[in-house]
Design a binder for these strands. Structure first.
Lengths: 161, 161
DNA sequence: TATTGTTATACTCTATAACTATA
DNA sequence: TATAGTTATAGAGTATAACAATA
């Protein structure tokens, strides 16, 4: 019989450490993010739709929105309705195929996304500020080669969020 | 006038790097976690209730459950109902005050929580395995002093999750 | 005939309020 | 009278199905 307690590998230790860090960051997030959303009374689906519209290269049709959000077309249409009512998105009839209605974010919609991203960033800044200079630079240096990896960069969306 | 482009501080760089890492981890999570939940057809509130019951030192009353979940007592009672119907939780009449019904996780409930935590852990392990040995040990070492901080340890829940 | 989008209906989850049981 | 919990009703959000418009 071998010993029951295995010495943990660097994989185990890192998975553990990251799990703890993620849990801590989630629990300490002040969530000023949600203040704006509560005021506007947006549902989670509506928020996801808005983020999708913000980062979309070109305004998606309702059925594309539905597919990307994992919603029925009816539900996606209603989510778009709500965003339009709030002045966060606009409907345009497609010039080529007049069946399709394309949805795009308005300036106000993009502004809201920007503020939500800034709130998330502030949460991370607060954490970063709570560390010593040594801890910060140590983590920045350890993170650098990982964030430079192609597979990570490929899934990195943009400068914000 | 000063230059418009400020050199970013270590705080900025770390906040940025962590944001990117978090985004990557979220986007690459395979989410086998949700397979179990879909089968059982548990709502988010029911899952949160189950996690709360699993880590509770003693079985909470329905009104305590409601307060911790941020739900109405009626909604908390219904969430408990669903868990009981699925065999994941039990109701006990309090021996002292027969008005209160205490809710506790069953062995099946704790087992499900364990499996959900294991799924999250596996996602992080997969990421850790995708790194080189140098990257892993670098990150483990950079994380070590931070995770040892009292304020982080205070918010760390348990060995799993 | 096939496809896009909207409207009609049903189901789930929630909150508020009314109700029952216990203190 | 006050408190714990359940039940009744109403309000979102979603999906499925029926419908209208366009291809």
């Amino acid at each position: 019989m071998f010993a029951c307690v295995q010495p943990s590998s660097s994989v185990d230790r890192l998975a553990d450490g990251l799990g703890t860090l993620l849990g801590y960051l989630m629990r300490t997030a002040e969530g000023d993010i949600f203040r704006d959303l509560m005021e506007l009374d947006l549902s989670p689906s509506q928020v996801r739709a808005l983020f999708l519209l913000d980062r979309a290269a070109s305004p998606p049709a309702v059925h594309e929105l539905a597919a990307e959000l994992g919603l029925s077309m009816a539900a996606a249409g209603r989510a778009a309705d709500a965003l339009v009512r709030h002045g966060l998105a606009e409907r345009h009839s497609d010039a080529v195929d007049r069946r399709v209605k394309r949805i795009s974010a308005t300036a106000a919609g993009r502004d809201l996304v920007g503020r939500l991203c800034a709130a998330r960033r502030d949460d991370l800044r607060r954490f970063a500020e709570s560390l010593t200079e040594e801890e910060r630079t140590g983590l920045v240096n350890a993170l650098a080669p990982i964030l430079a990896r192609p597979q990570v960069r490929a899934l990195t969306i943009g400068p914000h969020c």
